[in-house]
Design a protein around this nucleic acid. Structure first.
Lengths: 226, 226
DNA sequence: TTCATACTTCGATCGTAACAAAACTATCTA
DNA sequence: TAGATAGTTTTGTTACGATCGAAGTATGAA
């Protein structure tokens, strides 16, 4: 009985179209203001404000005030993973699943999940790291090997700074499009950051799609080969 | 935008208290009739019927007619995993989390997840199998090694019959209480079945809790040690 | 200061979805 | 066959929550 209450609480938060659209927008990882989210959800500011208050109370989003702006973001990695999971079920479930359009194809290939790379390329990346013994995976947990530490440091990632943060460095996140894991956590975020900084890929405007340049793709694949 | 619609669709299905209670009850793995679910949700039969129709349309539950009875069950393993995930987020999220009661303790230790063993003991079981090289895990996927095949056959599990079914034999499922994986899939179901058949444990009435006898616990731990 | 921007709170309206009672259908039992 | 049990459909009521406009608060800019 109580289990049902918990389910219903989260479900009803996610179950409203306006709120769902806001959450989907926040899956992009960038924090957004109330006005932006109102636009995204197609409602006026007052309604958006009410929705965001509920999402905040429910613990699904966090808010950071910055002057007269309020930046909203998903509260937690676990919330992002949950939303991914729900979207995955929705994708496989509906009887009315037509063949995926080109946009969906790009989404399956490479997209942002909260703050790290997801999709086939994200999965391939974790596969490569595991196969080369740089990372060990155990369920949602993961850890870096000695070899991994020197490898990632060599890529220019500041492991010391990352180690000091509370956030776990290595995590995995289940990918709905492939139903396999990709790299999340601080390291996952850092890798995505590197990929963009090197100009291998860039975020598509107003979407979660990550677009690799032809050159970037080659470089990426070379990295995976070691 | 469309991503939000998908989210909202599932969310609103789960978001109704009556439906959420039904789904929670079905997490126990046993198929239930409409009347039983009505009782569980605290609504009259007509209302329950309407709710079940919606859940069916939404693809979250499946129905099997048997004479004048209609047995409802979760549609799919992925639905069960999604609900587990949501419950996990709810458990860590709520600001009003008091210290877990004894019931919660039993739930964390050993419970049924759809049709297999979850909780600390479920996680320990998968750990043992992986550590002894009987099973290899890759994300949500998993597979049995040669050694594993002969080992599980030795436990009296009919692998041939299982292999013929469409359902994958080995899967993993993320455990919300421990945030690590436990064994699911056909093999997971078969193991739970063996545990109960040997009298090591039995289901608690009207709950997902699996209660091990002192003797059963010893035998179980001996099995894990190999 | 004064004005503009970003957001929240209030108040009223409106739809929708949950609900139960009663009537209906289908299956089993005697 | 008649009666009982299991479940669905229909109908009308009710209530909750999403919505917006208008007014209120806080922050920044001129």
């Amino acid at each position: 009985m109580k289990a049902g209450t918990d389910l219903a609480q989260i479900g009803s938060l996610v179950g409203d179209p306006a709120r769902a659209n806001m959450l989907a927008a926040l899956m992009g990882g960038t924090a957004l203001t109330a006005s932006e989210l109102a636009l995204e959800a197609g409602v006026t500011l007052p309604t958006a404000s009410a929705h965001l208050a509920k999402l905040g109370e429910g613990g699904l989003v966090s808010v950071a005030r910055q002057g007269r702006h309020r930046y909203y973001a998903l509260a937690d990695h676990s919330v992002a993973a949950m939303l991914e999971n729900i979207m995955g079920v929705a994708a496989t479930l509906g009887p009315k699943r037509v063949l995926p359009g080109p946009r969906d194809k790009a989404m399956r290939e490479a997209r942002v999940c909260y703050d790290h790379l997801a999709g086939e390329m994200g999965v391939a990346m974790l596969d490569s790291f595991v196969g080369r013994g740089l990372i060990r995976v155990d369920g949602e947990q993961a850890e870096m090997s000695e070899a991994g530490a020197s490898y990632f440091a060599g890529l220019g990632i500041d492991l010391d700074a990352m180690g000091r943060k509370r956030r776990p460095m290595c995590r995995t996140c289940l990918d709905w499009s492939v139903r396999r894991s990709h790299l999340a956590g601080g390291l996952g975020a850092a890798m995505l950051e590197r990929i963009q900084a090197k100009g291998w890929a860039r975020r598509e405007k107003d979407s979660r799609v990550v677009r690799f340049t032809p050159m970037g793709r080659r470089e990426f694949e070379m990295m995976l080969r070691g």
